[in-house]
Design a protein around this nucleic acid. Structure first.
Length: 412
DNA sequence: GTCAATTCACATGAAAGAGACCACGGTCTAGTG
DNA sequence: CTAGACCGTGGTCTCTTTCATGTGAATTGACGA
């Protein structure tokens, strides 16, 4: 890009010639709106359950279900914020369990909670017992009604098991000044079935369900937000309808609807237009998927990228029905030629499963009778995404331009 | 033709090791008054 | 005398290996009609 056009861009921004957005933050999931449409019932229910905290009574533990983008987190944040504003006797601790390095282990969760309560704990080095003891004492010194919200609680239990939940639910017995309640938020409705019976009964004293939004509801949400987010007249009604319709197809995911709207706006802004049209929504949808996948692949460790490189090579050399064994053979060759340590097939199997979970590849276990059991792997990504991924892998020296093995070479 | 046993190619689970990182307490050392 | 460097011990965390067990349908082979 020449320096002249760069200057032009900055000047346009500075002089406010292009102003699609009034306040873009409104369209992110950090933003907590003043009203949450179509969630009045849940707000009332949760409000009634939490209200006793204002009188200093212990609040029932609660479990909240609903698929992604149904407004669980934002509703809970909204209510608890109000609660905290109303009374000095309530303290809210909100933890997103999916965040890396927050709840990967029992130690880290306790350390994070202690940190929120004003007591720093070193990232490692202390025995877990000691961290637990510190957390207990700092919690007890609060002399308040502490409400602990564990968002995406299923992610945590999957990683570290439900022991920690058992410990947390039993904590009240050891607390003299403070009362602790737990709100678990999960998008896996079958989640509690996997829990230990004791944890399940004490954690789900109350259960609230958030159903997915339909297209009309999504449209209302987007309309409400877009008034604050966009400059007047910047967004056509058709754009909102389209974003709502696309997100409704994706299980009524409001987060996706908001992302679509925000990116459409950004794209319009970048093409120096003041009006967001449906054309930008199409491009936004494409960009959303592409960006997500590229980020996922970039974040993968080298070994995992090597596995992906093997898969792409196999696909491009015309292999059908790619199996774990095929990948392992090619992966070994790639490692050898790139001076990379070769992992065992056991580990490779896990890496393939991880790539599948991330949606980069599509793998499912099949039994081929006498010919064993294996995973059959497919690449379901759009061609432009594959090209981007290939670029990343080429940059990391895991793929070479234009070099694809043929079948004979592979098996020979 | 029927049916149980066998077989294959991994999947999956559990346990343990390696190496990085960190806290903490004790010891050593060089600088200062 | 003291601050700072250094070391050993004991802890966590992540990634990985090793070992053991599980899986499920095609194939095989014995058996009987």
């Amino acid at each position: 890009m020449s320096q002249k056009t760069l200057k032009e861009i900055f000047n346009n921004y500075k002089e406010n010639k292009i102003h699609v957005f009034k306040n873009k933050d409104v369209l992110t999931d950090r933003h907590i709106p003043n009203t949450i449409p179509h969630r009045e019932e849940q707000i009332n229910q949760i409000g009634m359950i939490l209200a006793p905290a204002l009188r200093g009574d212990k609040v029932s533990n609660m479990f909240i279900y609903g698929s992604t983008g149904t407004g669980k987190s934002v509703t809970v944040k909204y209510i608890t914020q109000e609660l905290e504003n109303t009374s000095d006797n309530v303290r809210i601790l909100f933890v997103n369990c999916k965040m890396k390095r927050v709840s990967d282990t029992e130690y880290r969760l306790l350390a994070e909670l202690s940190r929120m309560l004003g007591k720093e704990i070193p990232p490692t080095g202390l025995p877990t017992d000691e961290v637990y003891r510190i957390f207990l004492s700092v919690l007890n010194s609060q002399s308040k009604n502490v409400i602990l919200i564990l968002d995406e609680i299923d992610a945590m239990v999957k990683k570290v098991g439900d022991d920690i939940l058992y410990t947390l639910t039993r904590l009240n017995q050891e607390l003299t000044n403070t009362k602790l309640s737990i709100i678990g938020i999960s998008n896996d409705t079958a989640f509690t079935d996997k829990l230990d019976a004791r944890v399940k009964s004490s954690l789900s004293e109350e259960e609230i369900i958030f159903h997915p939004y339909d297209a009309t509801q999504l449209r209302n949400i987007l309309t409400a937000r877009s008034t604050d987010a966009f400059s007047e007249g910047a967004v056509e009604q058709a754009v909102i309808t389209k974003c709502a319709a696309l997100a409704a197809q994706e299980h009524g995911d409001a987060r996706r609807a908001l992302d679509l709207l925000r990116i459409s706006g950004e794209l319009a802004e970048r093409s120096m237009t003041q009006k967001v049209t449906t054309e930008f929504v199409d491009r936004a949808e494409e960009k959303l998927d592409l960006d997500r996948m590229v980020e996922v692949v970039k974040a993968q460790p080298r070994q995992s990228q090597a596995v992906l490189a093997s898969i792409i090579k196999l696909v491009e050399s015309g292999h059908k029905n790619i199996q774990t064994g095929d990948i392992f053979m090619l992966y070994e060759k790639i490692c050898q030629s790139r001076g990379l340590k070769t992992l065992t097939q056991r580990r490779l199997s896990d890496l393939i499963a991880e790539l599948d979970m991330l949606g980069v590849i599509n793998a499912h276990v099949i039994s081929k009778g006498r010919y064993g059991r294996t995973r059959e792997i497919k690449l379901t990504l759009a061609q432009n995404v594959v090209e981007k991924i290939k670029k990343i892998l080429t940059d990391n020296y895991l793929l070479t331009n234009g070099l694809f093995l043929d079948k004979r070479k592979l098996h020979g």
